[in-house]
Amino acid sequence: MTQRLTPATAGLLVIPPLLWAGNAVTGRLVHDLISPSTLNFIRWMLAFGLLLPLAHGVLRRDSGLWPHWRRYAVLGLLGIGLYNALQYLALQTSTPINVTLVGSSMPVFMLVVGALFFGAAVTRRQLLGALLSVCGVLLVLSRGDWSQLMAFRLVPGDIFMLLATLSWAFYSWLLSRTAEPASIRTDWAAFLMAQMVFGLAWSGGFAGAEWASGRAHIEWGWPLAAALVFIAVGPAVLAYRCWGIGVGRAGPAVAGFFVNLTPLFAGVMSAAFLGETPRLFHAAAFALIVGGIIVSSRR
């Protein structure tokens, strides 16, 4: 059941978008240095190593993980194997601003997935908030020219990011359904480690397919090493921790709107590190997205 959105919960839900914006900008910065699925796999290998001292007990034979392995295999596929790989793939052909703004369709996916597959009720305010967010996303897809929507041609990066957003919506709803023993659910490191066990297998399989296809590449150096450390510590471990708590307190539908803060942070970081100055339609799209957050979360 969704609880009231308190300042503390809102603060928790702001941290992941900030770190995920940094993840998008970093992915764009290193896209010439490493292929997307390989980047995702190495990222989660490093995160696995960071969590191992805190949650190694999850790997024991008598751990509560194994009776629920199917649940964690699905969570690992959606939240670790697919979402991040698709986002890095999107950044091969699109900018962090566009990728994060397309990802702002999250509220719509959250509401639709919740209503169709999890029996969640949808309020009028949530529908209005979703509509505002959709208008913001369409403004980005049209590049500020509404006449372009008549042709409706998405670039590859847009399509990959829409698929990533759908994956994350299912992940978030499954995350809110308690099915594991308290020994894992109440320990954030153990809960994330349980997902990583299978998420690494999925991402490793995708990376292997990437190398087998001949499309993989990697150029080692300090820039890539620094990028890997950041995305392993921040967007992986810290962001997932804060997101898990925030979803548990506010519910997936309300939490989904906070993901739409990512474009604001991505725009600021892109201007600072990539020289990609946001355009007027980016600001208008963000205003619509924030309006969706405010409308949907009000009681």
Rank of each mutant, 00 (worst) to 15 (best):
F206S: 14
T6Q: 07
S37R: 09
L46V: 09
A194E: 14
G267W: 12
L39Q: 04
V247T: 03
G234M: 00
M45Q: 14
V134P: 06
R71H: 10
R60F: 10
H68V: 00
S142V: 02
L163W: 09
V155I: 15
L39H: 02
V99C: 01
G221W: 05
F198E: 04
V155L: 15
V259A: 15
V112S: 07
Y240V: 08
L261F: 01
A151M: 14
F257M: 06
G256E: 12
E276R: 02
G76S: 04
L78Y: 00
P223Y: 04
S147Q: 08
N260C: 11
W168N: 13
N260V: 04
T100H: 07
H217T: 04
F170A: 04
S133V: 00
A120R: 01
F206P: 12
R61Q: 09
A239Q: 03
P156L: 11
G275H: 01
N260G: 02
L132T: 06
M110L: 11
G129N: 14
R71Y: 13
P36F: 01
L154S: 07
A207T: 14
A164Y: 02
L127Y: 01
L166M: 04
W69I: 03
V197W: 03
A209Q: 12
F286E: 06
S104Y: 04
G11Y: 01
R249W: 12
N23H: 14
Y88T: 00
P263G: 08
A239S: 03
L288Y: 06
D187K: 14
V113S: 05
A255Y: 15
V102T: 07
L141F: 04
L75Q: 15
H68C: 04
P181G: 06
V268G: 08
M45G: 12
T186V: 08
E219F: 05
P53V: 15
A47C: 06
L39S: 03
D145K: 10
G49A: 10
A227V: 00
A8C: 15
T178N: 06
L264G: 14
G49Y: 01
H31F: 03
R298Y: 02
R124H: 13
L132I: 11
C242I: 12
Q126P: 00
R60V: 06
I218E: 08
